[in-house]
Design a protein around this nucleic acid. Sequence first.
DNA 1: CCTATACTTAACTTATTCGTTAATTAACTA
DNA 2: TAGTTAATTAACGAATAAGTTAAGTATAGG
Lengths: 110, 110
Amino acid sequence: MLAQLSKGECTVSDLAKPFRDEMSLPAVTKHLKVLEKAGLITKSKDAQYRPCKLNADGLKEAADWMQEYRMFWEESFDRLDDYLKTVVAAEKKEKTKKPKGKKKKHASRK
Amino acid sequence: MLAQLSKGECTVSDLAKPFRDEMSLPAVTKHLKVLEKAGLITKSKDAQYRPCKLNADGLKEAADWMQEYRMFWEESFDRLDDYLKTVVAAEKKEKTKKPKGKKKKHASRK
DNA sequence: CCTATACTTAACTTATTCGTTAATTAACTA
DNA sequence: TAGTTAATTAACGAATAAGTTAAGTATAGG
């Protein structure tokens, strides 16, 4: 729906059309209500129609917010990568050792 | 919990300890069950204890999966950025024009 | 054998998400 | 004015997430 709106203002039923067989109109109304509350879109009046458009300010806020987390996510990716590299390396080493070595006891649990 | 496990195998109660006042032990059991089902950890038996460890294969799969979506997310970020640039530009232009111009009618809705 | 410890299972609660159908409001139009 | 179209509201429901308490199982160890 946001993608649709990025091409220009349009009405509730226009936005609903692509989802005709997936959800009802009231469902769309509700969906739009959360987008509106979230400040991502605005609705206005034109006779029976409620033309919707993207809200630049809200989108900017959202983008800024995501931008913050983007780093966090990427760091997480990198940490996972690091972790996997060490694990995979450890496993390769494991395989070159004798396959039936002593089982390592875990640390004492008292 | 995954972070904890990345430092080495440990038991259910060890994993639960940092969350003592946030959730009960059964809650932890359940949480671990979903991590196990998701293939991110494995559990074994040692007397009453159930030592858990990270599952490298599962984590690798998860990382690969995320890697795929990473691009999608970043593209989305970029598209948002692009969109915002054009919108902000458009708004600046708007402000330099006479503030009380003709209201543009929306496209006919028949 | 008895009991404490580690953990699990069962049964239930509570809140939220995401939808539904039916009725309602508002405005256009023949 | 009567009917149609656009959208919303009301009332409800199913599914899921994420916990809770209380009871049960398995094992170690005095």
